[in-house]
Amino acid sequence: MSRSEKFIVLPFKKVRGNVTPGEMRVASNAASAEKIARAMADRFVGVAAYSVQVDMESGDMSDPRILWQTGEIADIAA
């Protein structure tokens, strides 16, 4: 089993009163993910940078680990 750590940033917006994820951005490392998330923070109700382990053979992903967050975010693991 070949695992790889991936970094993503998700902005969140309000849709009909519910917090929903927007378009995902990929980052090359944890510091870059946090930098991207901080830059997006003023434009959304919430932003979070995540780390996730991906099994490169099966495509299975572990539950995301939050690296940095601000504002309102939704549980994306649910």
Results as ranks from 00 to 15, higher is better:
2 S>M: 10
3 R>K: 14
3 R>E: 08
4 S>L: 12
6 K>D: 04
6 K>L: 11
11 P>S: 10
13 K>H: 03
13 K>V: 15
13 K>I: 09
17 G>C: 06
18 N>W: 06
19 V>W: 00
19 V>L: 00
20 T>D: 03
20 T>S: 04
21 P>F: 09
21 P>W: 09
21 P>A: 07
22 G>E: 01
22 G>T: 12
23 E>N: 13
23 E>I: 13
24 M>I: 11
24 M>R: 15
25 R>P: 00
26 V>L: 10
26 V>K: 15
27 A>S: 12
27 A>M: 04
29 N>C: 02
29 N>E: 03
30 A>H: 03
30 A>R: 05
33 A>V: 09
33 A>M: 07
34 E>P: 05
34 E>I: 15
35 K>S: 15
35 K>Q: 13
36 I>E: 10
37 A>E: 03
37 A>D: 04
39 A>G: 14
40 M>N: 08
40 M>F: 04
41 A>E: 11
41 A>F: 05
42 D>S: 13
44 F>A: 04
44 F>P: 03
45 V>T: 14
45 V>F: 00
47 V>E: 01
48 A>T: 01
50 Y>G: 11
51 S>L: 11
52 V>P: 08
52 V>L: 13
53 Q>E: 14
53 Q>K: 14
55 D>R: 12
55 D>A: 07
56 M>P: 01
57 E>G: 06
58 S>Y: 11
58 S>K: 12
58 S>R: 11
60 D>F: 14
60 D>M: 13
61 M>D: 02
61 M>W: 02
61 M>N: 07
62 S>Y: 00
62 S>A: 12
63 D>G: 07
64 P>V: 11
67 L>Q: 06
67 L>S: 12
67 L>T: 08
68 W>S: 09
68 W>D: 04
70 T>S: 13
70 T>Y: 02
71 G>H: 09
72 E>W: 02
73 I>D: 05
74 A>I: 08
74 A>F: 02
74 A>E: 15
74 A>S: 15
76 I>S: 02
